[in-house]
């Protein structure tokens, strides 16, 4: 019996297989757990612990280090507004204040209808289109209050569903090719290549 849905569990196992050590799958698995529940539930974290061979406390400890992981429920849309230096110079703080009034929730909280969570973010690396706004980690490039309001209206009415999935879903492109080669095969190829290199080096010396 696993807590994750069958499809998530399968993807999780695929992810674990990509790494030489299973703990390495921690962050991708936490993203999956978040896709499963919208945020990190204790059940989800416990399952990640089992999959990565760690303790639940270690999973929680690791997850809570990272801003993208939410240990409490969040809205369907997590709206992030950057107020770091480049955006600050372009009115980021004002945009954040405006977002709070449009969404009806204070920074760091979720709107009453559970639709939106507003976050003040650090630089999102899109500083030429400032102030920068992300919804569920998609760049929406709305730099004016009016554009933001229009976006919120779109979100409320499901007009951006295609482009912006509910919070938690991060990567929708599945890996299609070449799961990690078996370790011994890789080691073998590496040894062969290494030997060839040494031979060549020896020849070149001559």
């Amino acid at each position: 019996m696993t807590y994750f849905r069958q499809d998530i569990r399968l993807r999780a196992q695929e992810v674990v297989a990509l790494y030489p050590q299973k703990r390495s799958a921690m962050l991708p698995l936490l993203h999956l757990a978040q896709e499963h529940d919208g945020y990190l539930t204790p059940e989800g974290m416990a399952e990640v612990a089992e999959l990565t061979g760690t303790s639940p406390a270690e999973v929680r400890g690791t997850a809570s280090f990272y801003d993208m992981f939410h240990l409490e429920p969040v809205g369907t849309y997590v709206v992030g507004v950057c107020t770091n230096i480049a955006c600050l110079l372009a009115g980021g703080q004002e945009m954040l204040d405006h977002a709070a009034s449009t969404l009806g929730c204070a920074v760091g909280s979720t709107s009453a209808d559970g639709m939106f969570t507003l976050e003040e973010t650090e630089c999102l690396a899109d500083c030429n289109i400032a102030p920068c706004v992300q919804v569920n980690h998609r760049f929406v490039r709305t730099t004016t209050p009016d554009a933001l309001d229009a976006l919120v209206d779109d979100l409320r009415n499901g007009r951006r569903d295609e482009e912006i999935p509910a919070h938690g879903t991060l990567i929708r492109v599945r890996r299609s090719g070449g799961l990690r080669a078996p370790a011994d095969q890789v080691a073998n190829e590496r040894a062969v290549a290494h030997r060839a290199r040494e031979e060549r080096a020896a020849q070149e010396k001559k």
Binding site: M45, V59, R60
Partner: peptide, 14 residues
């Protein structure tokens, strides 16, 4: 284990 980051680091059980 430690939970959180920076100033908000705290020791936490599951």
């Amino acid at each position: 284990d430690f939970a959180g980051r920076g100033e908000s680091i705290e020791v936490a059980p599951f």
